[in-house]
Computed example of a mutant assay.
Amino acid sequence: MKCIEVTLGDDKIFELGCEFISQLRELESSCFEYHWSEEQFRLGLEKKAFYVLGYVENGFLVGYLAYSLVLKEMEVLNLGVHPDFRRRGIGRALMLNLMHKCRQMEIKRGLLDVKETNHPAISLYESLGFKKVGVRKKYYPDTREDAHLYDLDFDGF
């Protein structure tokens, strides 16, 4: 799989806008079987229904984190790292960046769901202080796997 080249400054993590939709879709398709359409990305970003952080390594978009903000809650929608760049701390860096933003905005709670078999992601989220609070049976449309629900109380962290 090829990586997506981008032209930016020295920042590794930055907010992505609509101009990055094609790169986002290509990156997402290398990360997941089930992915968002161009229209879903465009409408979500245009209407600010969600936001996306990107991670650049040597000029290539290799990771992204989509999240939403509603009142004082943040929800992680998608976290993806190109397969050739996994296990290098990119997912952690994106999550820590988002958590820092949340604290600055006085967000009170963080939420996410994760496939029951995604052990690396579960380990990451738990190491960051997320606690398992429930299960949604057969939640994911691509695999029919259960979703494990996680919660983070920013006040208690």
Rank of each mutant, 00 (worst) to 15 (best):
M1D: 05
K2W: 06
K2M: 12
K2N: 15
C3E: 02
I4P: 00
I4R: 02
E5P: 08
V6M: 05
V6T: 06
T7G: 12
L8S: 12
G9H: 00
D10Y: 15
D10W: 10
D10E: 15
F14H: 07
E15V: 09
G17N: 04
C18M: 02
F20A: 04
I21V: 14
S22R: 08
R25P: 01
E28G: 02
E28L: 04
S29M: 04
F32E: 00
Y34I: 05
Y34A: 13
W36L: 14
W36S: 14
W36C: 14
S37Y: 13
Q40W: 10
G44K: 06
L45D: 02
K48T: 03
A49M: 14
Y51K: 08
Y51M: 08
Y51L: 03
V52T: 10
V52R: 07
L53S: 00
V56P: 01
E57Q: 02
E57F: 08
N58V: 07
G59T: 02
L61W: 11
Y64L: 03
Y67S: 01
L69S: 11
L69C: 02
V70M: 11
K72F: 07
M74I: 02
L77V: 05
N78F: 03
N78W: 07
V81P: 02
D84M: 07
D84T: 07
R86Y: 00
R87V: 00
R88T: 01
R88A: 04
I90R: 14
I90H: 13
G91A: 00
G91L: 00
L94A: 03
M95I: 10
N97H: 15
K101S: 06
K101F: 06
C102D: 04
R103I: 14
E106Q: 14
L112F: 12
L112V: 04
D113A: 06
V114P: 11
N118E: 12
I122R: 08
Y125I: 03
E126G: 15
G129N: 15
F130D: 06
K131D: 11
K132V: 10
K132Y: 03
K132H: 06
V133T: 15
G134P: 01
V135M: 07
V135L: 07
R136N: 09
K137S: 12
Y139S: 02
R144V: 06
D146F: 10
A147C: 05
A147T: 06
L149R: 04
L152R: 10
L152S: 09
L152F: 10
G156I: 05
